[in-house]
Design a protein around this nucleic acid. Structure first.
Lengths: 349, 349
DNA sequence: TTTGCCCTAGACAACGTTGTCTGATCACAG
DNA sequence: CTGTGATCAGACAACGTTGTCTAGGGCAAA
């Protein structure tokens, strides 16, 4: 009676433990552990009795305690720029699927491009002692992870390499991607190709614009630095760039005797989207190749040609690197490049 | 010498614990605990010494042990249909941001519309004893969560309600959204409005199509059941529906004396995208309103009018429900409806 | 100088598991 | 009927924390 009242009352509900199950089934604690873990050495009748008790009490193993005792976490940590960014969401999905196959669970967090937050979130994850950490670095240095790596935590950097840290990395083949974009445009007869990229502070932005210059050179086109605009993407800045590159007058600072650009490479999603937005109101309509695929890019008319990153491939490669490093922690830092894919939609003019 | 060799060798690297820090600083274990937790009762000189040792050894608190001892998890679990789905990604971001403010960390997993996997993932999360669970139900019953809820785990269902479970839920105002779509089309003179929805097995699909019928009634339009197509979205099925609804002949089974539809409501993202894809090849071009916003819908020409769900609002509301339930676990199950927003782009013809 | 008190620091147990080791039970062969 | 080995079950310690309780030491008041 009293028990019934107190259990239905507002008393702090306590979860049943192995001890409770053991008492209920009339066996030893360790026997319950054996049953729960499917270990051999439990007779059929005992097994049945314990399983009944488990169901009857609604027992679930406490993974925290298990981790503490055994060291196995069964948890993966992933820190990206923004989990709602389709690129990282796709990577996250690939990681989650692979993790699920391995019976692992994924913690995920966003840095929102804030270095301090990267550190904060990554360390909060590490405090949970995950089996591995996947990190899209944003801070200048990942030195703060030294103790973790020294203690054997495998770290994989994605999208950009880590700094001051022994970590594998999985990066897109930025150079190959830009080269395929340039080649595509050149094949379609373009020689005045503008380039709108992100601030050169950003690793991928640097790689991409360097590849742009190299690809022009290989196509025997003289790089006109006035056609390159590198800045954090803002609507205003992009509009100004477009005006200058496509306007009727000569491009400010351009090489003598040259006209407006006939084609544009936009080096990331946000820039591409903004250019598409402003496209209708532009004086001329350049051919366009965007780096990063856009959701539903196939619905835009005319179709948008893009250099698509293989988010799934990146996620899978990261998981593979983690597994091999877990198997052999002494491995040197490795860098994997995941190929991009030129998706040709519509024409290049 | 031997120690140096073994520590640089392949020996299992052990993380320093509070015990190690205590030994290094020459204080008691509990004193280290006090320092780590910012508890009072530690003299300034002791404090400094301990802090030095913490840095020197690269000590980080083991959150598993802390959770085991104190019961506080600092972890939130979230199970959605697909973390790469923009709708759930946006909810996830909102949840993660709120959680971060509360010093919490988020575990996230996908069901991929598989009921068995929902159970599997949710229980794997629960084994980590999170402070709360946010779940986008896909299974017919969430009965399997009974022991968790009984033990005090606050559960919030999002997108669809949970079944056989005491849980709060945060749902979109599906009825209001569809009603605004119908009203919008009627305002623009449409009276033959087709409806492409998901299978009626799906909760949201049911709510939406019922609202469609009700809205027609309120606009004094007789519902023509032949204009309603409910099925899991496949390219083939949608094409067939479009052919029948928009083709030159009478719509099969339609009320007598009626022509093709002049407008379409597409009740979810996938259907909307598929219709947009087929739009160019259709015999006539209906006005279109989609349920769910599409990334970059503003770039599609002509602009696509949509009923946008407030993913961020859903995420925030879920967090608020969790907090209030944590404060008072005896609360009855509550249901919150988050308003949708009609985003008018382009014309309705 | 002594008494009493507060402030700081440490000892100890416990959280829920699992790994190791020992003990009990039973079938069967000698 | 006893000895042997295999099989199953249990006792105990430990994982890294934190909460509770107690001991030491210095300072103020008497």
């Amino acid at each position: 009676m009293t028990a019934a009242v107190s259990s239905s009352g507002a008393l702090p509900p306590r979860r049943p433990t192995m001890k409770d199950v053991a008492a209920h089934a009339g066996v030893a604690l360790k026997t319950v552990s054996r049953v729960v873990n499917g270990e051999p050495g439990v007779g059929p009748s005992t097994l049945a009795r314990v399983e009944e008790s488990i169901v009857a009490l609604g027992y679930r193993r406490n993974e925290s305690a298990r981790q503490l005792r055994s060291g196995r976490a069964g948890t993966l940590a992933m820190v990206v720029r923004d989990i709602a960014d389709p690129f990282f969401a796709a990577i996250g999905r690939a990681v989650e699927m692979a993790a699920h196959r391995d019976g692992q669970v994924v913690m995920i967090g966003s840095t929102h491009e804030d270095p301090a937050r990267e550190r904060e979130v990554a360390l909060a994850f590490c405090a949970r002692r995950p089996d591995a950490l996947i990190l899209a670095p944003i801070a200048d240095s990942q030195e703060y992870l030294h103790p973790e790596v020294a203690a054997g935590l495998p770290v994989v950097a994605i999208d950009r390499p880590a700094h001051d840290l022994l970590a594998d990395s999985v990066l897109s083949d930025n150079a190959g991607g830009v080269r395929s974009a340039v080649d595509h445009l050149v094949r379609h007869g373009h020689r005045r190709i503008g380039y709108l990229g992100d601030d050169e502070m950003v690793f991928t932005a640097r790689e991409r614009v360097m590849a742009y210059r190299a690809a022009l050179r290989d196509n025997e086109i003289v790089t006109d630095e006035a056609l390159i605009r590198l800045a954090a993407p803002t609507a205003g800045g992009i509009q100004r760039s477009l005006d200058e590159l496509l306007g009727p007058g000569p491009v400010p600072g351009a090489l003598a005797g040259s006209g407006p650009v006939t084609a544009l490479i936009t080096a990331n999603n946000r820039i591409t989207a903004e250019v598409l937005r402003q496209l209708p109101s532009l004086p001329s309509r350049p051919a366009l190749v965007g780096f990063d695929d856009l959701e539903l890019a196939d619905l835009i008319t005319p179709g948008l040609t893009v250099v698509a990153q293989d988010a799934e491939g990146i996620g899978r490669a990261a998981m593979e690197l983690l597994e091999s490093r877990l198997a052999d922690p002494a491995l040197p830092a490795r860098e994997v490049r995941i190929p991009t894919r030129l998706i040709i939609r519509g024409s290049a003019e």
